[in-house]
Design a protein around this nucleic acid. Structure first.
Lengths: 290, 290
DNA sequence: ATCCATGTGTGATAAATATTTCACAATTGT
DNA sequence: ACAATTGTGAAATATTTATCACACATGGAT
């Protein structure tokens, strides 16, 4: 139960009555633009609140801090905590499980990854990338590595329904140079490369780039070296409590891209989907819906 | 347009390419819990990012600040401005995009899916499933369908490092009956089946079940018919604003399972991972870390 | 394989700032 | 007028910042 839910702001307000005139003036000034002003030097705060330096020093100790540095440090800690969970309602996700259960720890990390990742994405770049990916006049190559080829294939399977003229390339295979023979200016490569970044993928990207193709890169927070060649690159945070990295956030981006591209060409997509349905019916691949 | 819209966060990201390895590490650490960590003393920041003091000093100047104090002061100014501005909408994920943007709509849906899915999972069943999946005495078959085989393979690739004695089966291939010849009592099948549920997958599940194998099923909220044969089944919510369903939540469950199983057998996994690393080094598949 | 340029950490140090505390005078309200 | 509060100016301390020289590692080039 060591959980300290009292913010410094709360503590100040609570003590407001015990403070003297100048101290109250100072306290209110701190609350005025909280917490920024408390994070500057003591002198600046004093001038800002129009009180003297000793008044600040006195009040901070009156509030129970050992000194101004400690006060600041706790303010920062509070800020940290606040930035971490703006939607902290769900401290557990699998409510039946203890909060230390892997289900909750892992999900926490993934949600956090999503938040960080989305916060850093430039929507204009994303839209531009979707437009490129949806342009059927350009041949689209989708490239994945040892692990990421599963994501690449997932994207490929969906894009296949949306548009023609695309190829799935696995950078770890030794057949990819053949594909590049036909690639050229105006074509688009969607490349997946997360750590550990693969040599083959980089080589492939270099060749594609040399031929004038555009590159859309999905990578991680440390960014594959391919990003220097890429027209658009999107980096996901991928850290989770595991010996491996998480692909969930990248998957989210991929699916969002599919949804966006599909929106751009809804008429065509619809027709293609219906054709596909019909073919599935004929092959009896799926169960009739019951 | 005297409006200074460039946040320090933006500036850092923009300059990310010009930074060296240690500097980038520092920059990412700053962004990690922004802006709190940048408001503490330089020394603390250096320790936090695990870089040396001069590195911090060098980088802030590289970013165009006269010194660390100036950097901090601008950070505080930014925080002040942000707190003043009431248009801090926390209901969007990609803050730069309008709330109606696909990035935000899609992410909303996925988070919602995760919440619903996790809320309905029985942790005991999950743990039991992980124990089964980690039991190297039982042969493990991982089965996916037309789309889901990408998830199946993702799971397979990771489990392969954790334990021996496993096979990836694609239910849409016509070679799967051969695999079943060897399957028997005590073996485990992890099966992925989401709508539209595949006939082949059901048949495979029936045969596996008839031979006394245990089945762990990953399916969607409407549950594949396989669930009647399954020892444990986990259903994800998969609805998103798209013509397709989302696999992101299922991916989350899969990754969590990998992390859990890995925990059960950490010693063995560690040894296998090190062997794998060594083999990778020899094949030069990956770039050395720069 | 060897060498070189680059980047990085260490430890030390000087300079700059910040904090804390004094004593005392000025102010204020009672 | 008294007691409490506050500001002033200053000084002592403590901390922080900015550099430096140097050793060491690394990756790339020859």
């Amino acid at each position: 139960m060591a959980e300290e839910t009292l913010t410094i702001s709360d503590r100040i307000q609570h003590k407001l009555d015990d403070l003297t005139r100048a101290e109250r003036q100072l306290a209110l000034s701190i609350l005025e633009n909280y917490p920024a002003s408390g994070l500057g030097p003591l002198t600046a705060l004093a001038k800002d609140a129009d009180v003297s330096v000793p008044t600040v020093a006195r009040m901070v100790q009156k509030l129970g801090f050992k000194g101004y540095p400690e006060f600041q440090s706790e303010l920062r800690e509070e800020l940290r905590a606040k930035a971490k969970n703006p939607i902290a309602k769900h401290d557990t996700w699998a409510e039946a499980a203890p909060s230390g259960h892997m289900l909750n720890r892992f999900t926490d990390a993934v949600i956090d990854n999503i938040r960080h990742t989305l916060g850093q994405i430039d929507p204009a770049a994303f839209d531009a990338a979707c437009a490129l990916a949806g342009d059927a006049d350009r041949h689209l190559y989708i490239v994945g590595g040892r692990i990421t080829h599963t994501l690449a294939e997932y994207l490929f399977l969906h894009m296949q329904v949306i548009r023609p003229n695309l190829t799935h390339v696995q950078s770890t295979s030794n057949s990819w140079p053949h594909y590049l023979l036909n690639a050229g200016k105006g074509d688009v490569f969607i490349i997946f490369d997360v750590r550990r970044y693969e040599n083959n993928t980089l080589k492939l990207a270099e060749m594609a780039h040399a031929r004038g193709a555009q590159i859309i890169l999905f990578t991680d927070q440390w960014r594959s070296p391919v990003h220097q060649l890429a027209t658009h690159s999107f980096s996901s945070r991928i850290v989770v409590p595991s010996a491996w990295d998480s692909a969930a956030t990248t998957m989210l981006l991929v699916e969002t891209m599919v949804a966006s591209v599909q929106n751009l060409h809804w008429e065509g997509t619809k027709a293609r989907m219906e054709e596909l349905e019909e073919m599935f019916d004929q092959t009896r691949l799926f169960r009739k819906f019951t």
